[in-house]
């Protein structure tokens, strides 16, 4: 699985596909204080991104992929 759910932390790996968005949304609906670790993520389908944008979990770590990181910051950092 591209998203690894720990107690209060979702760790994203590699490419997170569209299919994972439903589970991510369900998980975030129950974890109001959830954190997300994007370190190893190289791409995520925008369905997942939408969920993150709407749920606004704390981003514990941004992707090491600089390009992806820049994009995600534009979407996830409140301006």
């Amino acid at each position: 699985m591209a998203i690894e759910y720990k107690k209060n932390l979702a760790v994203f790996h590699d490419v997170v596909s569209v299919e994972e968005a439903e589970a991510l949304l369900e998980w975030l609906q129950t974890k109001r204080t959830a954190k997300v670790d994007l370190t190893d993520c190289v791409h995520l389908h925008p369905a997942n991104l939408q969920v993150l944008m709407a749920a606004k979990p704390a981003i514990q770590a941004w992707p090491t992929d600089a390009g992806l990181s820049a994009w995600l910051e534009s979407a996830l950092v409140a301006r």
Partner: peptide, 14 residues
């Protein structure tokens, strides 16, 4: 964004 409970992950609004 709507409340999380009403969110449709598969309706693209980006």
């Amino acid at each position: 964004w709507p409340p999380l409970a009403d969110l449709d992950a598969y309706c693209c609004v980006l």
